[in-house]
Design a protein around this nucleic acid. Structure first.
Length: 376
RNA sequence: GUGGCUGUAGCUCAAUGGCAGAGCAUCGCACUGUGGAUGCGAGGGUUGUGGGUUCGACCCCCAUCAGCCACC
């Protein structure tokens, strides 16, 4: 079904950490990789040229949002997502499955699909595995995702049922998929339950898809639970296919994910935090609005090669924030994206050099997570 | 000069004799397959000043100061 456009070469492995090269019709993805999120066919506040300058390769967009607005037919009529939003590099679309979870106020899930109300105009819609694939084929991303259900990971009985449903849906996705220039990834579910995760990973691995994702994590469970689930899944998923941890995440989560065999990450965090005035540094997250930055002539991070840090002081960025200038979101987004992209590049190089253990240990020792629900 | 109105948080204003509050601003925290350039919280007061009435006064009375308006 897939043509020769997609191949994954595992270049080097150190422990569970992997350095690879995933070939797509729009260029290679060197892994580990972080994909910034452009839900509505735009990485918020950042132009494609600025995005390219951060070193980002893979960009994510969202089926649910684009299906509702402007509609898949319109995107298709404009030559697909790459052409429509002017991103020449690899792209990935989420299936809409996550919205089944995050918009649970207004959804109804059954074995055939999900009925939900539009957050834009309240109109009722129905999404099925078949429709999700049809929409994603019109959008035209290089990597498309199976339509899954992301259940709240607390109820074992419900998670078992939900996992079975997700597995059935993936097979339906495979049956209707037509375009050979798109790679369909399956998604492992199973909540925080090792036995379910094992079963799900075995099933997904057996499908022989060009890539495999791990879903249903970073949705409220503890870090320890997330790590445990990754460790359960790591030895089961095929080593010769990329693994994608959906929706993750923070810098420490990326490093911890690589340590447990993950190749691809995506997250809204760098851009959302930027719009909320927070920036990553190697020592942890800082809030640029803090008055301590009011007169600082230093950049967000000394030595950072991003456009923002090469040109602008913290005092200027804080001024933009206080004055409510939209450039603040742009400049901080550029920094945060490049921070994670660079972290992935450095991690990849360390794996290739055989020094990833030291790299990850020293990064995790230096980087101080600011969230209160950290650790544990 | 005469009369009137107004003085409460940094700012704009509530509170009609019963625990002085709000919005904005300031300060801080959070954000994980993006309904959100958002959400949560904190600090901040000799109610212009001085007297009086009252169990109790931002509130009523007297004086005084300041600003504004009108009329001489």
């Amino acid at each position: 079904m897939e043509d020769q456009s997609f191949s994954f070469k595992l270049e080097k492995q150190q422990g569970s950490a992997r350095a690879g090269n995933f070939t797509t019709p729009h260029g290679n993805i060197l892994t580990p990789v972080f994909a910034p999120v452009g839900t509505q066919a735009t990485v918020k506040a950042v132009s494609p040229a600025q995005l390219a300058e951060t070193g980002a390769s893979l960009v994510l967009a969202n089926t649910y949002h684009l299906y509702l607005r402007p509609g898949a037919d319109l995107v298709e009529a404009h030559g697909g997502l790459h052409s429509f939003m002017r991103w020449d590099g690899p792209m990935l679309t989420d299936s809409g499955g996550f919205q089944v979870f995050s918009l649970s106020d207004t959804r109804k899930v059954d074995d055939d699909g999900v009925t939900f109300k539009s957050h834009i105009d309240g109109s009722t819609h129905r999404l099925t595995p078949e429709l999700s694939i049809q929409v994603q084929e019109k959008l035209g991303a290089d990597i498309i995702m199976a339509f899954d259900e992301c259940a709240v990971p607390v109820d074992l009985a419900y998670n078992r049922k939900s996992m079975a449903r997700t597995h059935a849906w993936i097979e339906r996705c495979m049956r209707v998929k037509q375009r050979p220039d798109q790679a369909l990834f399956g998604i492992v579910q199973g909540g925080v339950f090792p036995e379910l995760r094992r079963e799900s990973a075995s099933f997904i691995a057996s499908l022989g898809l060009p890539g495999n994702a791990i879903g249903g994590l970073s949705v409220g469970e503890t870090k320890a639970q997330m790590h445990a689930m990754l460790e359960v899944v790591d030895p089961i998923l095929p080593t010769d296919k990329p693994r994608y941890l959906m929706g993750v995440g923070s810098p420490e989560d990326l490093v911890n994910g690589i340590l447990r065999g993950v190749d691809i990450f995506d997250c809204v965090l760098p851009t959302r935090l930027a719009r909320h005035q927070a920036a990553f540094t190697r020592y942890g997250r800082i809030n640029l609005m803090n008055s301590a930055n009011a007169s600082l002539k230093s950049p967000i991070e000394d030595g950072c090669q991003c456009y923002t840090c090469r040109n602008f002081t913290r005092a200027y960025l804080r001024h933009l924030i206080i004055a409510k200038e939209i450039l603040a979101a742009t400049l901080i987004s550029i920094h945060n994206i490049q921070f994670l992209v660079t972290l992935m590049k450095n991690a990849r190089q360390a794996i290739l050099d055989g020094t990833f253990n030291d790299f990850s240990a020293s990064f995790l020792a230096e980087y101080k997570p600011s969230s209160r629900k950290e650790q544990t």
